[in-house]
Amino acid sequence: MAVPAAAANDPISAPVRTGPDYFLWLCRAASLAAIFVLGWIFWEIFQEALPALEEFGASFLSGASWQPNRDRYGVLPFLVGTVATALIALLIALPPGLAIAIFLSEDFLPLPARQFVRFVVELLAAIPSVVYGLWGIFVVIPIIQQVGTWCAERFPDVPFLAGPAYGNSLLTASVVLALMILPTITAISRSSLVAVPRTLREGAYALGATRWETIFGVILPTAAPGVVAATILALGRAMGETMAVAMLIGNSSRLSWSLFAPSGTLASLLANQFGEAEGMQVAALMYAALVLVALTLAVNFAGEAVLRYTEKRTAGIR
């Protein structure tokens, strides 16, 4: 995050030593290389998307039908699906993810218990996405289908819960995505929670704050940049996930309000169609990738806004 970077480490007046700083040049070269490579990727996508950009322009975003054989391309259903799955996944994953991060950085239970939990959460990160997809098919889909049918019968008038309920649905994909992004949220949040100086914590205790008053009043606000960064990385991961989502979401391009209806995401669209795509379809898929990049960017800006707001509110502590 740009803001805290500046706030936390204003370059301290560096001591003057003779000779050029070769290390600085090395770091600068690495930075340039990173920009170069990442910019190159962006350029690559952009170039491949150009025919579709010229052909469809903004109507690409508002179009609701995706018919490769008619050369009609509109990503609205997938755009909605991407935002919805990622947000629901985040909604599900953030509370336990943060809770685990706090649990790991506090001393509620003895070290071995914490190490066990940490180990287990990091195992989650190691599971390939195909396996998440298979697990979703075998375990999550039957559960969601039952829950969905029950909801549809009980609340037929609530558009979010309307039937007919499918197992391969928006909610199924979100639940599995939530699990996939949990390690990202936990691991990065934990790092920044652990990095909060002891002195701050001790100060809060000395002022009579209880443990949770300290956590909410001092530790979380201090670690906020890290937590926000973790959330954004996790959201990015959720929006970009291909294989597991493609296996679970039902891959429909029909717009629906229901959580239990099949849907689609931009990334799963790419995974589904890239291998067999030809001509304009390739360009349209790359355009979809560009839309996804723009979405990531929007998420980042939103994250920075949240951060600036927290900083203002916690200015006294920092």
């Binding site: 018919q67 490769p68 054989n69 039902g250 099949p262």
Partner: peptide, 20 residues
């Protein structure tokens, strides 16, 4: 609907691959 490698059927849900 028309004929192609990926088409939009007016009904149903999509599985990825034969296994899906």
């Amino acid at each position: 609907v028309g004929a192609d490698k990926s088409v939009v059927f007016p009904v149903g849900i999509g599985g990825k691959g034969n296994e899906g």
